[in-house]
């Protein structure tokens, strides 16, 4: 019993760590993007200020489903983050860091947010949800095919074991071992994080920030926390799957920072796709590349 309690406490610690890490790195990245645009940029802890300010405001609610969806979204994402291994040996629930849990639990968070947004009764929110789900349909399939290749090659779907597999001498990172798949994964990750050119579902100038249109105050603050933890999960997935996991926590933070910053820099020079362009984009090259990579790696056995 004490064991389980301790594990759950560790899990909550992991989730909290993820939140703090991602929020700080997001703040730093706002500075990085500002420098790309020849600006000075905000303080590195600006994201914390934003979130706590939102939590301190008096918000409005559109009924119980509006609140319930937010609680469900944040709660499930916290739960998901609790499973995330930080290094290849440190995680709260040893042996249960199954890849599919992350992919599907994130979907519950999305569902909670979508439910709450639709419950606000604003049509722009529903349009935003529609776009978010459509984008998800676009990026998820190529990404899953690449991950299928990795799972087939390593014979395990546990993130930490995939990480360890890459650390064994003679195996290179899957970003290098599966170069075509690696490119697909980077593109899919940009879609997952909603970075430009795939931020169609936020589109502040077009549909007034989409699903978030009716949120203010604590609900928006909780969704911000949820978003930060979601980003933490998604980027960590990439680190574990493609960048060889991490031997220790410092390496994890370094890899995490590099991935997130590069994505942000790429994103800062792009415009925005229309939603049907997003779908067409992902179902054209990334999907073909992912399938090619899977054929090459699984059937021909060509892995660098």
């Amino acid at each position: 019993m004490i064991d389980i309690l301790l594990m759950i406490l560790t899990g909550i610690g992991v989730a909290f760590f993820g939140f703090v890490l991602q929020t700080s790195i997001a703040g730093v990245n706002r500075k990085v993007v500002a420098r790309v645009q020849k600006r000075y940029g905000p303080k590195w802890y600006q994201e914390f200020l934003d979130i706590f300010k939102l939590l301190s405001k008096r918000s409005v609610t559109h009924g119980w489903i509006f609140d319930f969806g937010v609680i469900m979204a944040l709660g499930v994402i916290i739960g998901t983050a609790m499973f995330m291994p930080l290094t290849s040996s440190f995680m709260a629930f040893d042996g249960y860091d199954n890849f599919f849990i992350f992919v599907y639990l994130i979907a519950v968070g999305m569902l909670g947010m979508a439910m709450s947004a639709s419950g606000s009764g604003n049509p722009l929110a529903s349009i935003g949800v529609m776009r978010a789900l459509t984008t998800m349909l676009a990026y998820e399939v190529p990404f899953m095919i690449v991950v299928l290749t990795i799972i087939k090659l390593t014979g395990t779907s546990s993130l930490s074991e995939i990480g360890l597999f890459q650390q064994v001498a003679g195996n290179s990172w899957f970003l290098i071992a599966l170069p075509i798949g690696g490119i697909v994964a980077v593109m899919a990750l940009m879609g997952m994080l909603g970075k430009k050119p795939f931020e169609t579902y936020i589109a502040p100038a077009e549909i007034a920030s989409g699903p978030m249109v009716e949120y203010g105050g604590k609900q928006l603050g909780m969704l911000f926390i949820m978003h930060e933890i979601t980003v933490f999960i998604e980027v960590s997935l990439f680190v574990h799957l493609f960048l060889g996991g991490a031997e220790n926590i410092v390496l994890f933070i370094v890899k995490y920072f590099v991935v997130y910053t590069i994505l942000n820099i790429i994103s800062s020079v792009y415009g925005r796709f229309k939603i049907d362009q997003v779908v067409l984009f992902f179902y054209k090259w990334p999907l073909i590349m992912a399938i090619t990579q899977a054929f090459i790696a699984i059937y021909l056995g060509w892995v660098i």
């Binding site: 000075y40 007034a208 203010g216």
Partner: peptide, 11 residues
């Protein structure tokens, strides 16, 4: 943005 200000989409 260095003052922490930014544009938002909705009231």
């Amino acid at each position: 943005e260095r003052l922490g200000m930014g544009p938002m989409a909705t009231p």
